[in-house]
């Protein structure tokens, strides 16, 4: 028997907490997600130029949105951190009050819950691998990516970022989309 590394256990707990929030409206699970993500969202917003008091309020808003929109979460299409990131990003865009960001046409509900959870774990592993690969990038390239995501670079300043390790993660998501389209038949 090999032991699961603590980090992986933590990620699995995040997924199951997110699903508890989605399916059982579990407030204790929400409190754990808040403990993990609210400080991170606050940090993200500060890095993106918000003052700390505004970032604190907005981090709360973002977490309330995580609860209110939990029914849209599909573990086969995004890791929990990514799902929270997209909500935090949208909040940052609202704060800037400049460029609206329309969403693509909605695909509605995800695939069958059981397979979705399984796919979710695989996607989570890919996502962890991506995190490790990002850490291993040369400093200059990594800095450029961070600047882009924290809103410090305009689209003109982002050179094509090639060589990012996105291959497997892309094919996992492509698979999830195919299943979803198939389910919608």
């Amino acid at each position: 028997m090999t032991e699961t590394p603590p980090e992986e256990t933590e990620k699995a707990i995040l997924i199951s907490d997110m699903l508890r929030v989605r399916d059982q409206r579990d407030r204790a699970a929400f409190a754990r997600l808040f403990g993990h993500f609210a400080p991170r969202v606050k940090g993200f917003l500060i890095r993106a130029g918000s003052d700390p008091a505004v970032a604190e309020d907005c981090a709360q808003d973002v977490m309330v949105t995580v609860w209110n929109k939990a029914h849209l979460y599909d573990p086969a299409r995004a890791s929990v951190a990514t799902w929270v990131f997209t909500i935090a990003r949208n909040r940052r865009i609202d704060l800037a009050r400049r460029d609206r960001r329309p969403e693509p046409e909605d695909l509605g509900w995800g695939p069958e819950p059981e397979t979705a959870q399984e796919d979710g774990l695989v996607l989570q592993q890919e996502s962890d691998r991506l995190g490790v690969a990002l850490k291993g990038l040369p400093e200059a390239q990594r800095e450029l990516i961070e600047k882009c995501y924290f809103g410090d670079l305009s689209h003109r300043e982002i050179a094509d970022v090639t060589g990012l390790p996105l291959g497997t993660i892309k094919s996992r998501i492509r698979l999830a989309l195919d299943k979803l389209r198939h389910a919608m038949g």
Binding site: A38, S79, T82, E146, K170
Partner: peptide
């Protein structure tokens, strides 16, 4: 799918920075 992969990068970056609430 490519967009979702780029959003995963955002998720990975979010995991790193934290400021106490």
């Amino acid at each position: 799918a490519t967009l979702a992969a780029y959003e995963e990068i955002g998720g990975a970056l979010l995991e790193e920075a934290g400021v106490a609430m």
